[in-house]
Simulated scan of single mutants.
Amino acid sequence: MADSDSFAAGATFVDGDYVPIGRAAVSVLYWGFTKSDVTYDVVHVWRGAFFRLDDHLARFARSMAALRMTIPHDAGQQARILAGCVQRAGLADAYVAMVATRGVPLFGMPRRPSLMTNRYIAYAIPWIDVIPVPVQERGAHLIVASTPRIPSESVDPTVRNYHWGDLVQAMFEAEAAGADNAVLLDRDGHVTEGPGFNVFAVRDGVVLSPDRGALEGVTRQTVIDICAELGLELRIGPMTRADLYEADEIFTSTTAGGVMPAARIDGRILSNDRPGPVSRRIRETYWAWHEEGRHLTPVAGLV
């Protein structure tokens, strides 16, 4: 096992320097820690190249603007910092994060977030699959959680954030039910998202995706692009529990795992208890785009 002085477990850029992930530290007074006043984004590296890096950097910039945060690094500088983390860790396949936190209030400063200096952190660690690959192969077993999603009027889900209280409770519900993960509804009964992933359903060959309460995922956008290329009809609109129960197929999408099919929802079996044909086709196309080099930004020195 790598020790705290080794980059083998991952690399972090913090306070203007690169350090092994085991030695990375921030103040316990950071509002990102004490008040979840933080935004972040995650991009993956696959076989030595970022996938849709520009899209992730652009979304990160939008999130910072929404939270009135600024950092001293433009998109090009951030790209080099993220690559620096990957290079130091020597990871051909990696989970790479960029984080902006409000910062720490100085002693005697009025309690005003506008007066605080925002902080930037980046790190690269070995690849993460939100749903393990063997589970993806047989199709995930999902539940619809009883915990409702945090209202969008309170916490904007299109701004990536650390407000995971509802998502973590949903994960406990899934574990207690013997399921792999959960999907959350809003208080009006509409489908939103799961812990770290977007949700899709397929019915009569039409791909459906919720129009509310969810992060506008980069992988979700890739699925939308794939549907257009494959000639699959896609509808984005309100979805309810009934839409999940009556679906022929369900699949999820995330940077940390790609397109991940489901086989059950609340014990209801879909597609003979295996990933369905549309889900499989979209998943295969997603990884084929990687193989073809679409949207890839190579990291120097890895391949």
Score class of each variant (00 low, 15 high):
Gly178Leu: 04
Val155Ile: 15
Ala179Gly: 07
Gly178Arg: 02
Tyr162Met: 13
Gly165Leu: 14
Glu175Phe: 08
Val159Glu: 05
Gln169Cys: 07
Pro151Tyr: 09
Val183Gly: 05
Arg160His: 10
Ser154Met: 10
His163Thr: 00
Ala170Leu: 07
Val159Cys: 05
Gln169Tyr: 11
Asn161Arg: 10
Glu175Trp: 12
Ala174Cys: 02
Met171Ala: 07
Pro157Gly: 11
Ala177Leu: 01
Ala182Pro: 09
Phe172Gly: 03
Ser152Cys: 10
Tyr162Gly: 06
Glu173Lys: 06
Val168Cys: 01
His163Gly: 01
Ala177Pro: 01
Leu167Met: 15
Val183Asn: 05
Arg187Tyr: 13
Ser154Lys: 11
Trp164Glu: 01
Leu167Ser: 13
Glu175Gly: 15
Leu184Tyr: 04
Gly165Val: 08
Asn161Val: 06
Leu184Glu: 00
Ser154Gln: 13
Ala182Phe: 00
Glu175Tyr: 14
Gly165His: 14
Val183Met: 07
Ala179Arg: 04
Ser146Leu: 08
Asp166Phe: 01
Pro151Glu: 08
Pro157Ala: 01
Leu185Trp: 02
Ile150Tyr: 13
Leu167Thr: 04
Ala170Met: 09
Asn181Gln: 10
Gln169Trp: 12
Arg187Val: 13
Asn161Ile: 07
Ala170Arg: 02
Gly165Tyr: 06
Ala179Lys: 05
Leu184Ile: 11
His163Pro: 01
Gln169Glu: 13
Thr158Val: 10
Leu167Asp: 13
Phe172Asn: 10
Gly165Ile: 06
Gly178Gln: 02
Arg187Ser: 14
Val168Asn: 04
Leu184Cys: 04
Ser146Ala: 14
Leu167Glu: 06
Ala174Gln: 04
Glu153Arg: 14
Asn181Thr: 06
Asp186Val: 08
Val168Arg: 00
Phe172Tyr: 13
Asn181Gly: 08
Ala177Asp: 05
Ala170Glu: 04
His163Phe: 02
Leu167His: 13
Leu184Ala: 06
Ile150Glu: 09
Val159Tyr: 00
Glu153Ile: 11
Met171Asn: 06
Ser152Ile: 05
Met171His: 04
